[in-house]
Design a protein around this nucleic acid. Structure first.
Lengths: 129, 129
DNA sequence: ATCGTACTACGAGGATCGTCGTAATTGCAA
DNA sequence: TTGCAATTACGACGATCCTCGTAGTACGAT
């Protein structure tokens, strides 16, 4: 049985976000996105991706000359893991507190509050299967 | 103006939880709580606390023979900071996604869902001031 | 075939983290 | 006062993280 990949670090998470939004990508493509946010060498991104592949956080397809990387787990799966981790470590398992914390962290608009309620409803429906 | 204390690390957060729930505590008291979860030397906790005081994460009262430490920021303040950080880094700022992630991370009961809704209502009321 | 370009491999180095051992200090009791 | 027990101070070590430089490799154009 393959063991779960470890929790991504900050830099890894930033790269994962690129992979999730772009889909399978070459190192060059990832680097272009990262580099426009902060000055970063090409090889830094390359090394990061290699490490991520080692850890099982990313998967590499080296059929082509330029290797293609993709996230090993879906955005949703990873988000759930990270949220659960924080929930456990900082919120004593109280989902309500985490929700409250998230809402007050950014100043949530009425519009977004409604969106949250809708998600809540959907989630509850999902429980009855 | 004093700058914001940095985000607590994992080990620091564990100690902060003890300080929050116990209030101002000696190193010995903190160590006793930590040690019953995982084997840890007394000086490890001591050093951690000293570093936390340096960083501004904890405050030290050295009036007594045994120094007394307390969290520099409230549990709520820190929770908000951590939730906001994760929101930014992993959820593209979508509070709804974070809520969803948190709920599905632990399997949230119907009872707790109701609690979350109540918190949501309270929070929304707070917006109109 | 060779040369240049784009790519990968890999190790090094500085920073932080978490842990602990040891030395120095303090207060108290005999 | 002297010695013991508890406490603090501090440095060091290994692990991980993040970054980058350099070397090696493969492909295509000439």
């Amino acid at each position: 049985m393959p063991s779960e990949p470890p929790k991504p670090t900050d830099a890894e998470l930033e790269i994962l976000c690129v992979l999730w939004s772009r889909g399978p990508s070459t190192v060059r493509a990832v680097h272009e996105v990262i580099a426009e946010r902060k000055p970063t060498q090409y090889t830094t991104v390359l090394k990061q991706l290699q490490v991520m592949a080692d850890k099982g956080i990313a998967q590499r397809d080296d059929a082509q000359r330029s290797h293609v990387y993709q996230a090993a787990r879906s955005r949703e799966w990873t988000q759930r893991q990270l949220a659960g981790d924080l929930l456990q470590r900082a919120f004593e398992g109280s989902a309500g507190s985490l929700v409250l914390g998230a809402l007050s962290a950014k100043k949530t608009s009425k519009r977004e509050l409604a969106e949250v309620r809708r998600m809540l409803d959907d989630y509850e429906k999902g429980l009855f299967r």
